[in-house]
C-alpha cells in the first residue's frame, strides 16, 4: 500500500516536472538559426516594407505593424523568419523556415504566456508543414484549434501567414 502511494507521488512529480519543462523550454533565436543552417548561418538580410506590404501585414495581424524593416536569413532557396506576436498578453516568438513558398518547419522559440503552452508541441506545429498561402492570404490548409489556447493558436497562424507573405515578396 505504502509502495503504491510513494509510486503515485513519484509519477505525479515526474509528470509535473516534465510538463513544467515543456512549458519553459525556450530556444534562443541564434541557436535555432545555427541549427537550421548547420552552424554556418548566412548573413542576415532585410526586407523593407512598402505601403502595400505593410497594409497587407496589418490586415493579417488585425492591427498596425510598427516598423519598416524585417530581418530574415536565406540560403539555398530556404528562408528563415523570426517573428513575434502577442497571444493574449505577452509576445510569442516563432521561427519559420520556408522553401518554395511552403513552410517546412515552424518552431515556437519563446512562449511567455501563462496558458496555452500546448502550441509548443510538435502535434500542433507539424500541422504547418507544407502549408502555403492562398491568393486571399489565408493558409491553404486549416489549422486545428487547441481548446484553452485559442489566442496563441490564432497568433501563430497569423505569423505563419505573414512569413509566407514576406517570403513571396522577396
Amino acid at each position: 500500500m505504502k509502495k503504491t502511494a510513494y509510486l503515485s507521488i513519484l509519477v505525479l512529480l515526474v509528470t509535473n516536472i516534465t510538463s513544467y519543462a515543456a512549458r519553459n523550454a525556450n530556444q534562443q533565436p541564434a541557436t535555432f538559426i545555427n541549427a537550421v543552417f548547420n552552424h554556418h548561418p548566412p548573413k542576415a538580410k532585410a526586407i523593407w516594407l512598402n505601403k502595400t506590404l505593410k497594409q497587407q501585414i496589418a490586415d493579417i495581424l488585425q492591427h498596425p505593424y510598427h516598423g519598416f524593416r524585417i530581418h530574415y536569413w536565406q540560403q539555398q532557396g530556404k528562408t528563415l523568419w523570426i517573428l513575434d506576436e502577442i497571444g493574449k498578453e505577452k509576445p510569442i516568438t516563432i521561427g519559420i523556415i520556408i522553401q518554395r513558398h511552403k513552410i517546412t518547419r515552424l518552431r515556437v522559440l519563446a512562449f511567455r504566456e501563462s496558458r496555452g503552452w500546448e502550441v509548443r508541441q510538435r502535434f500542433f506545429t507539424s500541422q504547418f508543414n507544407q502549408v502555403a498561402l492562398k491568393k486571399d492570404h489565408q493558409l491553404d490548409t486549416p489549422i486545428d484549434n487547441i481548446s484553452g489556447a485559442t489566442l496563441s493558436v490564432r497568433a501563430i497562424t497569423k505569423l505563419a501567414r505573414v512569413a509566407l507573405l514576406l517570403d513571396q515578396s522577396i
Binding site: 534562443q28 541564434a30 532585410a46 516598423g67 519598416f68 530581418h71
Partner: peptide, 11 residues
Amino acid sequence: ELVERIDTSSS
C-alpha cells in the same frame, strides 16, 4: 519613425 527593433539577447 520606428524602422526595426532587433533583439540582441541571443547574439
